[in-house]
Design a protein around this nucleic acid. Structure first.
Length: 661
DNA sequence: GCCAACGTTGGC
DNA sequence: GCCAACGTTGGC
């Protein structure tokens, strides 16, 4: 029998004579950390009866409802709490579960619509008095078992779910879910700000001896906790990555074979491997330790090698394989500029919140039909999907916006009026104003205009001899393809230059698989001051419809160059600006790049981080493996799922001569 | 840190 | 009121 917590103090003296017959089980109905166990009497006239005991998160033990009431205080209404079963009973639909004083329970906001949809059925079928035998089966006197269908994994009560289409990884009733969310939210706050009450939060000065202090990590990095003095990290932060080890989930040794995770096909290509639902920790926490931070963070902090800090410009570039350009870049000689964008730089686009992803003019925006093949389309109900991702068709996601995000310095030229994003993202540019599609297949040309532009707008700075800093005001890293390091940039500027945007489909780790080709991103995403190229008549016809991802995998490696374009119907003829060649560079590239970018490191709030994720994910990275290209290996550390049509943008252009001197 | 999931909201 | 999909967040 596994005891959930440490030595038993005086408590055993109060126990019935009969030995404990059951393990401690979580009792989420009372809140995180509460445990319950049921003991069957094995002798005497009451043999067969059971006694129920509870243990509070602090280890206090309660053996009766009266004790529990006393323990929780008068503010806590236990009338709905079934002490014997350890569940909340809802004789009427409007009642609320017991409130544990130490836990603030917030109801997640629900849209009115959802309430309308969900509350009604609950009134009839949910929160009714839980049948005792059913509850007993679910909560006690049985080995760890699956919750019955429609039963909350935590409290075991039956409920109707929160929607017919929703598939949640964890089957929780409304209250348990709210409780869980509130708990997680609270934990975030503790990590971010601390509780302000614990002894650690009262400490006002760094200890000077912990790893964080010794390494003098900047204080504005990451979540705030990350580089906070270990002695000042809120003690109310609980670990949860490894599980508590004692709950039913943690003690389950084998996959259930029945849950959603077990039933779905294995996804070894995914970096994130999902755990059987039945094996997940029900408490999501275990022993609190001094410092109280996430163990993963601790690990990183204690390992200088794993420091997340942006490395200073090294005299000798590190040879980290993950950051090594040879592992990331194509082999053909070219130069690539990787941009990462701060949110501020996108202000004109982000002001308009839900409309800020549409330029209204690019081929993608002009496309009216979903492709029906991409992962997002497949997710749509109209294509038979489950509406879980709820994202716009890959082929309809604004190209201009992606470019804007990736090439802010290029877009920021106010005098480039016609090429600037329209003030109203929804406004569609008349087709007559569109520039003709310009396509090329040849290496870039040197043009005075482009060089002039570069001279006017220095695009890079060199720090030392090998490190290139982003231009002022941008998060920009210059990489030279084939260089030995992402931060190693050759001195003399290459002769060839072009304001040529390449949207490349990456074959991670396999430079030989790259399809070095050409891509012209024409108006409206052409670079100011840099000429477009002439159309190459030899260019193969542009594909008009995204092929089936799977079918496309082979073909896209046979054909070259790869030319993606909106379908005829959408492209509006020759005038539609089109990205004619797309290489999908994994979002990893952006993340890896971010490692080199001090301005992207650490100082982002979660919200900002979320936006960055959006950049990498929603615009640049897939959320599905359905677009896994040939050559994708997925073993590269930090790899995101395989690419989709628009994954990354690199810009081939010359080094600014003015910055070379 | 990352991603899947989904709450929410703007547009129709 | 419905739908598309944006933006957030829970879970790993």
């Amino acid at each position: 029998m596994a005891e959930a917590s440490g030595p038993e103090p005086s408590w055993p003296l109060l126990l019935p004579v009969a030995p404990m017959a059951e393990d401690w089980l979580d009792c989420p109905a009372l809140g995180p950390g509460w445990k319950r166990r049921e003991v069957f009497r094995k002798s005497g006239v009451t043999c067969g009866r059971s006694d129920t005991y509870y243990q509070s998160p602090t280890g206090d033990r309660i053996r009766s409802k009266v004790e529990l009431t006393r323990y929780l205080g008068p503010a806590c209404d236990l009338t709905l709490f079934d002490f014997k079963q350890g569940v909340l009973c809802y004789p009427t639909p409007k009642t609320h579960p017991v409130t544990v004083p130490s836990k603030k329970r917030k109801k997640p906001s629900k849209p009115a619509k959802d309430k309308k949809r969900q509350v009604a059925p609950q009134k009839n079928e949910v929160r009714k008095e839980t049948p005792k035998n059913e509850t007993k089966t679910a909560t006690a006197a049985s080995p760890p078992s699956l919750p019955a269908p429609g039963c909350c994994e935590n409290c075991g009560i039956s409920f109707s779910g929160d929607g017919t289409r929703r598939q949640r990884l964890k089957t929780l009733c409304k209250d348990c879910r709210a409780q869980r969310i509130a708990f997680n939210r609270e934990q975030r706050k503790f990590k971010r700000e601390g509780c302000g009450e614990c002894t650690a939060c009262q400490v006002t000065e760094d200890c000077g001896t912990c790893t964080t202090c010794l390494l003098q990590l900047p204080r504005d990095v990451a979540s705030g906790l990350f580089c906070k003095c270990e002695q000042r990290r809120c003690l109310r932060i609980v670990e949860r990555s490894r599980g508590c080890g004692v709950c039913r989930g943690c003690q389950t040794r084998e996959d259930c074979g029945r849950c959603r995770i077990c039933l779905r096909p294995p996804r070894p290509d995914l970096r994130r491997q999902w755990k059987c639902v039945q094996r997940r920790c029900l408490r999501s926490k275990h022993g609190r330790r001094r410092g109280g931070c996430d163990p993963k963070m601790t690990t990183r902090q204690r390992s200088p090698r794993a420091q997340p800090l942006p490395p200073p410009p090294p005299p000798q570039p590190p040879e980290s394989p993950e950051l090594h350009p040879r592992a990331l870049s194509p082999s053909s000689p070219a130069e690539f500029i990787y941009y990462c964008v701060d949110e501020d730089e996108l202000q004109p686009y982000t002001n308009n919140r839900r409309q800020n992803r549409k330029c209204g003019t690019c081929a993608a925006c002009l496309r009216r039909m979903d492709c029906g093949h991409c992962d997002f389309c497949c997710d749509k109900p109209k294509f038979g999907g489950s509406n879980q991702k709820r994202q716009k068709c890959r082929w309809r996601q604004c190209l201009q916006f992606a470019m804007k995000r990736l090439l802010p310095s290029v877009w920021a030229e106010p005098e480039e009026g016609p090429e600037s994003p329209p003030p109203n993202p929804r406004r569609k540019r008349p087709s007559s104003t569109r520039r003709p599609r310009v396509v090329t297949t040849k290496p870039p040309l040197v043009t005075p205009a482009s060089q002039e532009h570069c001279a006017q707008t220095p695009m890079k700075q060199e720090a030392g001899s090998s490190f290139v800093l982003p231009p002022p005001g941008t998060d920009l890293v210059f990489l030279r393809e084939g260089a030995s390091s992402p931060v190693q940039v050759p001195g003399p500027a290459p002769a060839a230059t072009e304001t040529l945007l390449q949207v490349k489909q990456e074959k991670m780790d396999t430079p030989e698989d790259w399809t070095p080709g050409t891509a012209i991103l024409t108006s409206p995403v052409s670079l100011p001051g840099c000429p477009s190229k002439a159309v190459d008549p030899d260019l193969p016809p542009v594909k008009q419809e995204p092929p089936d991802p799977e079918e496309n995998k082979e073909e896209e490696h046979k054909t070259h160059p790869i030319c993606y374009s909106a379908p005829d119907e959408e492209a509006g003829g020759a005038g539609t600006p089109v990205i004619t060649e797309i290489f999908s560079l994994g979002g990893t590239r952006l993340r890896d790049t971010a490692v080199w970018l001090p301005s992207l490191q650490g100082r982002q709030s979660r919200k900002e981080a979320g936006r960055k994720v959006w950049k990498t994910k929603n615009t640049l990275a897939p959320t599905s493996t359905s677009w896994k290209p040939q050559g994708w290996r997925g073993t590269h550390a930090g790899l995101s799922p395989p690419p989709t049509p628009i994954m990354w943008v690199s810009c081939r252009r010359s080094w600014c001569p003015s910055s070379q001197s």
